[in-house]
Design a protein around this nucleic acid. Structure first.
Lengths: 135, 135
DNA sequence: TCTAAACCTTTCACTAACTATAAGGTCAAG
DNA sequence: CTTGACCTTATAGTTAGTGAAAGGTTTAGA
């Protein structure tokens, strides 16, 4: 299969596929006489794996670990379990940070008239020299 | 004031301050004879503004808009209000995406034994060739 | 007076995960 | 024979800085 067909099938951009190869995230497929990449079923499966893992929010480095666990028949499922558990914790942290931001911004919005006047407490708050905007 | 003192006061890294200057986000302070930057009160206030805006989660480009609104005495507070409203919407979207990720991953964790066996439904799920991991 | 530490300067390279562009070779259809 | 859709590579751009190299300046202390 050519890279274009693989891209269509997996939903990955052809450039993304070449990029994954360039950073040695996936096996390099063999080349035909004309230099085109010839993807085997195994090559395509690796790319499917990556598409899914990336959609789940795993970083490239985490994908590297997951791919290696996938390839290892002696893996222990606890390894996968703890990797994913860590990921969930980070996502939770991130959500908390975003919630805090949203809370502060929403509070500022309530204080800004939002009309034709130049007076705006949001701008005033940003321009203030206090140590922290949360303080 | 020298850059080090400004950095200490505002909590910004000196390199970050030079970076903001290099992308023309803030006014370039004048130089002394020895080439050192000499920060005025106004220069420092711009940096305070940036520190706060960045802490609130605004991107550099958004900060550019906010700085320009701050500098403009003819601004209408509705402009600030809608900029911040947009920001809140994006944050909400982001939170929703992260919640969805977390939900899927948590679901997968429940199905993985997390023991010494190699069988793991998370890996199986990632390796599957279905169109979407949400499907 | 000499020296060492603590400043300051610049430029380049690196981070994550691609995407865009340029410049070119190959293949299939009309 | 040409057009367009493929494929190839290398380079640079994206975000928001950070780290390192290599050097000039200032200040405090022996």
């Amino acid at each position: 299969m050519n890279i274009g067909a693989v891209a269509k099938q997996t939903g990955l951009n052809a450039k993304t596929i070449r990029y994954y190869e360039s950073i040695n995230l996936v096996d390099s497929p063999p080349r035909r006489e004309n230099g085109y990449r010839e993807y085997s079923e195994k090559n395509v499966q690796q790319l499917w794996f990556l598409r899914h893992a990336r959609q789940f929010g795993f970083s490239i480095d985490e994908c590297r670990d997951l791919l290696s666990l996938w390839a290892n028949p002696n893996r222990k499922s606890v390894e996968v379990h703890s990797l994913v558990t860590e990921k969930v914790k980070h996502i939770e942290q991130h959500i908390q940070e975003l919630r805090q931001m949203k809370k502060v911004l929403t509070g500022l919005l309530d204080e800004c008239p939002g009309d034709d006047s130049p007076h705006c407490s949001i701008i005033a708050r940003l321009a203030s020299e206090m140590e922290s905007p949360n303080g």
